[in-house]
Design a protein around this nucleic acid. Structure first.
Length: 469
RNA sequence: GUGGCUAUAGUUUAGUGGUAAAACACCAGUCUGUGGCACUGGUUUCGAGAGUUCGAUUCUCUCUAGCCACCCCA
């Protein structure tokens, strides 16, 4: 026994080490100690107790998707790397620093998706969805990958909920997107959220604005931080949300994109704000809001959690991307969408102590005693299940005592006891756990009797559809 | 990617240069076929590797992971 234990311990330690990479022909891989009893950095399990939260996030968002007319779509985790380079944009952090890009055995350069919209757009074009009645509304949910340094609420694998709407350019869609995002968050019991909106213009006025901005920033060049001097060449818009104090000062008095919109974009933004007012959706206009993806035009928005003074975290964001479909080779199609980070939603749910719905619990426990009874109980269990009686068991346990302990812990209302004697007599003992009273019932009447008892108990039944949005 | 802090049973935490402890949890017994309470007992641990040392869980270094700030965003 002791020997056995020692071996187990040893093998566990051995398992903790990943096998060294074997040198393969001429290439010699770097020798490294790894661990296989934990996932790679920034990845984590979603454990059973967490699933309550996940179920709820899924349920709330799926219901809203349905109610607002969005159809589900799932696209591959892996796409050609160029899809993201083209859409998200070269020069963005996501593409330059954070993408998991690799070559397949066949030599294709592919990437784990760093966001969902690009793949959805690809699918939209590939399957000719432009012939469908507009707008085409798509809903997706799944993991995305970014090679970033992990910390709480920031993982290399995280899940996003994505809503996209294609083919409609009216600002009412933008407003509705913001409304849906807010509804998802509120539906999860998160009350304090802040909507930040901005307009970064279309390809025409943004170009003009960019020149204006660069001129201004060039004049203040000396006051900018090191990073921003580089940004000035590559992506000047990003200087606007630099957190360096001195850059912030410069940015604060920089020309603002909303003051330099073309007529069309200006009206679009004005309409959006009017629609938001109409929806009674509070928002903050943040002229420095610039998103990390290049495909956005006109409307951009983010949703932040937390109170005024508390720590704020972005729960999600989105915007309009009227040029993306064309850029990827489709018919010019206006579009608007947003994504929400599920892990962050759950962190926030926990922070505000929003209780997830409890999953249904078994109300009956089946205990068995002795070989014959054990055999019979296996069938009885599935008989109960077929009749819709959610039953728990602990077939692995022998003693009645330990089985009753489990039954008690589960909080069931009724325990069925099937022993040697009952197995021979074709009966079952029905024990009421609250009162301790038990009665002997003939096996063929058992299902009806239990059904009656459970009904009579008038216990609150779990409501599948009670989602408080 | 940069800087800082941390790593002890399943969980939350004590503690020590001489290989470890508490609480809760789990398993079992007291009760030969009856749960909750109580009592008794049991299982399980120093993140990985290297160095210093007679001896390292403790000191040093490296790696890994977690957290925090920056950055970025979801």
């Amino acid at each position: 026994m002791a020997k056995n234990k020692a071996r187990t311990k040893k093998s566990k330690k051995k398992l903790l080490k990943r096998p060294r990479k074997i040198s393969k022909s001429k290439e010699v891989f770097q020798e490294q100690e790894h661990f296989i009893l934990q996932p790679p950095r920034g990845m984590k399990d979603i454990l059973p107790e967490e699933q309550l939260y996940w179920d709820q996030v899924r349920k709330v968002s799926e219901r809203l998707a349905r109610d607002f007319g969005f159809s589900r779509i799932d696209t591959p985790l892996i796409e050609f790397a160029n899809l993201f380079v083209r859409s998200v944009g070269e020069g963005t952090d996501i593409v330059d620093k954070e993408m998991y890009t690799f070559l397949t055995r066949g030599g294709d350069r592919v990437a784990l998706r760093p966001e969902l919209t690009a793949g959805i757009c690809r699918s939209y074009i590939q399957h000719g969805m432009q012939v469908l009645p507009k707008p085409v509304k798509l809903f997706s949910i799944g993991p995305v990958y970014r090679y970033d340094r992990p910390q709480e609420g920031r993982y290399r694998e995280h899940y996003q909920i994505n809503f996209d709407s294609f083919g409609e350019q009216d600002a009412i869609l933008d407003a509705q997107m913001i409304q849906i995002a807010s509804r998802v968050i509120q539906g999860l019991g998160i009350k304090s959220l802040q909507v930040q909106v901005n307009s970064i213009g279309c390809s025409v006025c943004r170009k003009e604005y960019k020149e204006l901005l660069v001129n201004y920033l060039e004049s203040k060049r000396l006051k900018l931080c090191q990073d921003c001097k580089v940004r000035l060449e590559k992506n000047p818009l990003r200087i606007l949300d630099c957190k360096e104090d001195k850059c912030f000062q410069v940015a604060a008095s920089a020309p603002q994109s909303i003051d330099h919109l073309c007529e069309e974009c200006r009206i679009h933004f004005k309409n959006l704000l009017e629609y938001l007012d109409e929806l009674d959706l509070p928002y903050v206009i943040n002229p420095q809001l610039v998103r990390g993806l290049d495909y956005y035009t006109k409307t951009v928005f983010e949703i932040w959690s937390g109170e005024e003074d508390g720590r704020k975290q972005s729960l999600g964001g989105g915007g309009r991307y009227d040029n993306l479909i064309k850029l990827l080779g489709g018919e010019p199609t206006p579009a608007v969408g947003f994504g929400l980070g599920i892990e962050r939603l759950i962190i926030e749910m926990k922070r505000v102590q929003a209780r997830p719905y409890r999953s249904p619990r078994p109300r009956v426990f089946l205990a068995q005693l002795g070989d014959l009874a054990k055999k019979k109980s296996l069938k009885l269990f599935s008989e109960l299940e077929k009749n819709g009686i959610f039953t728990a068991e602990s077939f692995g346990r022998g003693s009645l005592k330990s089985q009753l302990r489990v039954a008690d812990r589960l909080g069931v209302e009724i325990t069925l006891i099937l022993g040697q004697k009952e197995a021979l007599d074709q009966t079952v003992i029905v024990k009421n756990m609250a009162s301790g009273v038990q009665e002997i019932v003939s096996a063929d009447k058992l299902v009806d009797i239990i059904k009656k008892k459970l009904k009579a108990d008038n216990v609150v039944v779990y409501h599948e559809d009670s989602v408080n949005t």
